[in-house]
């Protein structure tokens, strides 16, 4: 701030009265006032100058106040009468309403009309009420029914399932029939001759071979070979003579002959022996009877499981498992927390 002089002393005075002068500035101010007593007297007058509030009141202020009735845009008497009907009036409001009625007696009729606006409930019955009623099976009941269904399924399987599943299927039993006795003399020559004739004739007629490879082989040639062989065997009088293979005529590689594989050959060789060994076992050899139908075999079990499955809904599940050939090979039974998966015996 610049130094105080007679041109700027008012600013110093105002700052002094506002109390914002620093100590240094105040010292300057007081030094200045000692040199200028007329300005010191002026500062004293500044300090005495204060404004006193005027005692003025606004008589219409009450008219500017807003009430709930104004918010609702309803006349004050109407508001009071409705409030009397709805919630009741305070003592002040009651006096206010009474004053309003004294001023305007038509409010008595209005008040009576307001009391009539209260709706009386009608007795109306809803016809569809019964359809809304709900029923719920209690969780305990559900649990009991699940346990019961599971127990029933398990008992059923124990009683009927073991018997049926563990039984030997009928298709596995073999009925043996007595074989016809073989004839004492087998005319092999005739049989072979017939067989060869049956083979060669369609072979030549079909012209499956090229002309170069075509078999020029007649039945009479084969007959001659067979006779020659028989003569050799008879003349020697014994079967120990070394067997000489017939010369290849070039057609044996192209004949349609189905050669059994090693498994079939072994099976054909072993089967008669196997059957002879087990001929005395009655359980193994079935009686000569008609095999039972699949429906009969599984009827009790299937019906029982179907019944349990139907009654229990999702509680019991029975699934049959089949192999590639469509054979029923295993089953899976689920009932509650119980689960059985079992393979059937072949």
């Amino acid at each position: 701030m610049s130094r105080i002089d007679r041109n700027n002393y008012e600013i110093w005075f105002i700052d002094y009265m506002d109390g914002i002068l620093s100590d240094e500035s105040e010292k300057q101010l007081f030094a200045f006032l000692e040199k200028n007593p007329d300005l010191a007297e002026e500062l004293d007058k500044f300090e005495e100058l204060t404004l006193q509030p005027a005692d003025i009141s606004f008589d219409a202020a009450s008219r500017l106040q807003k009430s709930e009735a104004d918010v609702m845009q309803i006349a004050r008497p109407d508001f009071l009468m409705i409030k009397q009907l709805e919630d009741g009036l305070t003592e002040a409001e009651g006096q206010e309403l009474a004053e309003e009625i004294r001023k305007d007696e038509s409010l008595i009729r209005k008040g009576r009309e307001y009391r009539l606006t209260r709706l009386a409930p009608e007795l109306i019955e809803y016809a569809g009420k019964h359809s809304l009623i709900r029923k719920e099976i209690r969780p305990m009941l559900i649990q009991i029914s699940r346990i019961t269904a599971a127990a029933a399924a398990v008992i059923f399987v124990m009683i009927f399932g073991l018997k049926v599943f563990n039984s030997v299927p009928d298709e596995d039993t073999i009925a043996l029939h007595p074989l016809e006795p073989l004839p004492a003399d087998i005319n092999e020559t005739v049989e072979i001759e017939k067989d060869l004739k049956n083979i060669i004739e369609p072979y030549n007629s079909a012209k499956l071979l090229s002309s170069r490879q075509k078999v020029e082989y007649s039945v009479s040639d084969i007959q001659d070979d067979i006779k020659r062989q028989n003569t050799t065997i008879e003349s020697s009088g014994t079967m120990d003579a070394p067997m000489v293979p017939l010369p290849s005529r070039g057609f044996d590689q192209t004949l349609f002959v189905s050669v059994p594989n090693a498994y079939e050959a072994g099976l054909r060789h072993m089967m008669p022996m196997y059957l002879d060994l087990n001929r005395e076992k009655q359980n193994f050899i079935a009686e000569n009877r008609e095999p039972a139908s699949p429906e009969e075999t599984n009827s009790i079990l299937v019906r029982g499981i179907q019944f349990v499955d139907k009654v229990s809904g999702d509680l019991v599940n029975f699934d049959k498992l089949y192999d590639e050939d469509g054979n029923f090979v295993a089953y899976n039974l689920k009932a509650g927390g119980f689960e059985v998966e079992k393979k059937l015996r072949k």
């Binding site: 918010v71 609702m72 845009q73 309803i74 109407d78 508001f79 409705i82 009907l85 709805e86 209005k110 009309e113 307001y114 009539l116 606006t117």
Partner: peptide
């Protein structure tokens, strides 16, 4: 407000 206004209308 709704109720009070409705009462005024009904009256």
């Amino acid at each position: 407000v709704y109720i009070y206004r409705a009462r005024v209308f009904l009256r």
